[in-house]
Nucleic acid binder design. Structure first.
Lengths: 365, 365
DNA sequence: GCTGGCACTCGCCCCCGAGGTCTGCTAACG
DNA sequence: CGTTAGCAGACCTCGGGGGCGAGTGCCAGC
């Protein structure tokens, strides 16, 4: 899903009058100005915006009555909507979408956080995981939204070392160290005690055969070794193969860092049960991981607004996410109410992703 | 702080009339029955309990008027309190405290979750961390409260293996494997490239000198080695000593697993900003760790009710926690509104702690 | 010491009306 | 034809007032 993807609410719109799906760019200059004014004012204040206010903010040389006509047209087109008759207008998902698309067409982004600031906040990380954790903290503090950071997928990383440590006679700890600095570990349990010598042999064999291979291939390689191994080693190798089955890369995905959940509670937009629902989703790491992995590949952040969101329960929230690259790519983003300051959030997400990427690169070369 | 610790709200009580601090066990049988009825009914319904309701529930052979007299006395003693005149009574922190103390004096605990159930939910963990994560999930699901699990402190664990992996010419990854199955890792950065041979020598030396020592001693040992090392190794050993400085055990503490935060949002007891405050605290891992580490050493869960809680911002919540032991001990617990079903929560926390301990033992012998 | 009765206190809910805001419409203007 | 001023109408919000009901405290009597 690219950053330009649109997903008008036609399907779920309860309104009786159908929304015209065509005229995306046909808004004339004045309508655009008005829409922009409504979006930014509403984001700032949280209150519906009336025609009078628009005139002041948008600096138009027309009267409020004219603006009213234009607003009626904008509503007809599905960009804005009024909570009840005789109230001001608030942007619809589609309105935000137009606003965001316009933003990303602008070449230079507005006021992101200064690189040095982010740099400083990210500094002093002890290892990759610590760095990602800090990133999540920084992101949520800068945006006052919920931050999500997902670790880089491991399958393209290369295995640097396999280690086997016997914990008890019948259990061993398997360590897989990737060149990205990540360490996967598995407990290997056996029916019978393992001789230290056998453990050592297996360790040597594994390192000879599997080192420097891609993590994604590791399981298959080990399984192959197990089949052809001398019988006294076969049991152990089989157990190891079992411990690395499938989930080596998949499990990595579930490494998601979440920060700033408290900010959700402060958000008056959310009803109590919506809040609860969103918080619940934030604990389902798999869902989050899938969501974030659907981030576009371009250097622009991907924005999913309200109903555009694939996950039920996030239909009143927006997700701004971006990839960062190392050996392979991970992604990070923020989640918040659809009513968010997209301009500055986009800039911040971009800046943090860039800085994270840079820091990661420093760490590994 | 033991499970019997009390902390009457005298200091913070806004009421003008002082609360008598003495008469803890002087409640006569009927008062106890009434208090019990009020606590359990209020926990169940969330509404203030009137005298009439108490008569029905407590199965007393007296009239409502008599109960009213007793309730007035209970209020005078500080065990219950009415939100406003002409409303029913709700328990104070002190009321809950009495109730809980009475519970823990009873020898047999009521209906905890069946051991097999917990066992099953905890099964299939891949390693210690995964197990703790699952424990946290189980705990929050069983209690519908926020669960907290803290990993066992590492300083008494023994070092099984030190590994050094060069990631780039100037950075290496230091791995410390404890006999509990935990792995600590640190990135070691150097000014100048390291020769592989030197890395290997250091690796060997470290393993010879430090293996099987307690994690708490590791840093000092390495620092000692660095001082006496030949000059070509001194830089590397110094860097390693730096990477293990102090935080080896302390950082472990910050490994806290939190689950079930969504349940807080469903709780109508909490105001919006209280909710936000508690959620914020839940992200401060250090505070949580300290809180949980203050759990009593006996086999009874420790209960801290409302104002008894040392952390500002948790004054409207209760924390039920218990230690579990392996090589050293960790603790787990749940956090929720003071209005919680202490009987079943206590039983559940106990059962889960027991089961976790057992599973951990299985894993490491 | 217990009980029934009674007056009283309040919170809750609903209704109502005033005030204010913003709209849509219409008629007039350039 | 686009724009504008003016106006009636819709509807939210807020505060006051009254009825209702729950629960209490107190008192007199057993």
């Amino acid at each position: 899903m690219s950053s330009l993807s649109s997903n008008p609410s036609s399907g779920a719109a309860p309104g009786p009058e159908p929304v015209r799906d065509d005229a995306r760019d046909l808004l004339d200059d004045r309508k655009v100005k008005i829409l922009r004014a409504i979006v930014s004012e509403y984001v700032a204040t949280g209150e519906p915006i009336g025609s009078k206010r628009v005139v002041e903010v948008a600096q138009l040389d027309v009267s409020a009555a004219t603006v009213r006509n234009e607003m009626a047209a904008l509503e007809e087109l599905g960009y804005i909507h009024q909570p009840h008759t005789s109230a001001g207008r608030i942007p619809t998902d589609r309105g935000y979408r137009y606003f965001v698309d316009e933003l990303s067409e602008m070449t230079k982004m507005p006021n992101g956080p200064r690189a040095e600031l982010v740099q400083e906040l990210l500094g002093g990380a002890r290892d990759v995981e610590d760095l990602l954790f800090r990133t999540s903290t920084v992101l949520s503090q800068l945006t006052r939204l919920v931050s999500l950071v997902i670790a880089p997928a491991m399958d393209a990383a290369r295995l640097k070392l396999i280690e086997l440590v016997s914990l008890t006679p019948q259990t061993a700890l398997l360590l897989l160290v990737a060149d990205t600095g990540r360490v996967e570990k598995r407990v290997v349990e056996l029916r019978e005690p393992i001789a230290d010598a056998d453990l050592e042999r297996v360790r040597t064999v594994l390192n000879e055969q599997v080192r420097d291979r891609r993590m994604g291939e590791v399981h298959d390689l080990i399984a192959g070794l197990a089949e052809n191994a001398p019988s006294e080693l076969r049991v152990l190798l089989g157990a190891i193969a079992g411990a690395t089955a499938g989930n080596l890369t998949e499990e990595t995905i579930s490494h998601v860092y979440v920060g700033g959940q408290a900010s959700l509670a402060g958000e008056p937009t959310f009803e109590r049960d919506q809040l609860s629902q969103v918080l619940e989703l934030l604990e389902e790491r798999m869902t989050l991981a899938r969501l974030l992995s659907e981030t576009g590949d371009d250097d622009q952040p991907t924005v999913r607004i309200g109903e555009e969101n694939p996950v039920e329960g996030l239909r009143t929230t927006s997700l701004v996410s971006q990839r960062y690259r190392l050996v392979t790519s991970g992604s990070l983003g923020v989640l918040g109410p659809t009513r968010m300051d997209y301009a500055s959030v986009l800039a911040t997400v971009r800046a943090v992703a860039g800085q994270l990427q840079e820091t990661l690169t420093d760490l590994s070369e």
